[in-house]
């Protein structure tokens, strides 16, 4: 860990390097002058209150939103150059799950980028997709209609679609929102497994209580970056208060005292 941190000033050695990024909708800035460095091999949480610009940040990094200023480097190169190295899990409710198709087919979509225009997925792709479904323990649902899946199962399918991309760096938008406890545990185990393979994972996360248990890197965002670094350094009452402002006063007594005293970092 310490080794990686020392090298962070050098751009190609950073999994994600964002410089002075400003994004605005209709002349109103949503992200102000973001400087972000995430070293490779970490499981990073992007945390902040509603409307802090968390999803916007990810979408801008992936080129889905055009920034007003600044630039983004993934392993030292632009997103376009690194596209094949990047996997993306959008918010689950951003799609219509009544679409007529099976889980296996959704996962196969993860390979469309590699196939490029016009080429069709074949046996090999189906096999890869099946393997990804096995990783999220959904192989028995491979031929199930996606409309019949529970929220947690849908999220696993989305995760499998990212796994099949065999990327180096994963961006996920609230993968644990509205899923059951079993799925949440399954997802976090997969994320940790990926990290142990040296992949970088950048996760928009909404639940402050689990940050310390799940993640080893943390970015506190509220329109600008308030703090970033290893969770143990960033997860302080002071930083959280800065990010959540007045909302934090409500959370403060309930959570932080318990969290900072009680958690044992068993999983890190």
């Amino acid at each position: 860990m310490a080794d990686k941190l020392n090298k962070q000033t050098h751009e190609p050695d950073l999994a994600l390097h964002v410089e002075d990024l400003t994004v605005s909708y209709a002349s109103k800035p949503v992200l102000w002058d973001i400087d972000l460095n995430i070293p490779p091999g970490v499981l990073a949480a992007i945390v902040g209150p509603n409307g802090a610009g968390k999803s916007t940040l990810i979408k801008t990094v992936l080129g889905l939103i055009k920034p007003t200023a600044g630039h983004v480097y993934i392993h030292g190169k632009s997103y376009k150059q690194q596209m094949s190295q990047v996997a993306y899990v959008p918010q689950r409710n951003s799609v219509d799950w009544d679409f007529p198709t099976t889980s296996l087919d959704i996962v196969t979509m993860g390979l469309y980028g590699k196939l490029g225009w016009l080429k069709r997925p074949g046996k090999k792709e189906k096999k890869q997709a099946m393997h990804a479904l096995e990783q999220v323990a959904m192989e028995s649902f491979a031929h199930r209609q996606i409309s019949q899946l529970s929220g947690g199962q849908q999220q696993r399918v989305f995760l499998a679609r990212a796994l099949v991309q065999e990327a180096n760096i994963y961006f996920m938008d609230e993968p644990m929102a509205g899923v059951d406890a079993t799925t949440e545990r399954a997802i976090i185990n997969i994320l940790k497994e990926l990290r142990s393979q040296g992949k970088t994972l950048i996760i928009v996360h909404h639940d402050l209580q689990t940050v310390q248990n799940y993640f080893d890197w943390m970015v506190l965002l509220n329109v600008r970056i308030l703090a970033q670094g290893p969770v143990k350094d960033v997860y302080t009452a002071e930083n959280l208060a800065a990010a959540y402002g007045n909302q934090f006063a409500l959370l403060n007594n309930m959570q932080i005292s318990k969290e900072t005293n009680g958690s044992n970092h068993e999983n890190l």
Partner: peptide
């Protein structure tokens, strides 16, 4: 104005 603000923020 926003550019100037971005500069001050930077």
């Amino acid at each position: 104005e926003n550019t100037a603000r971005t500069l001050t923020v930077h």
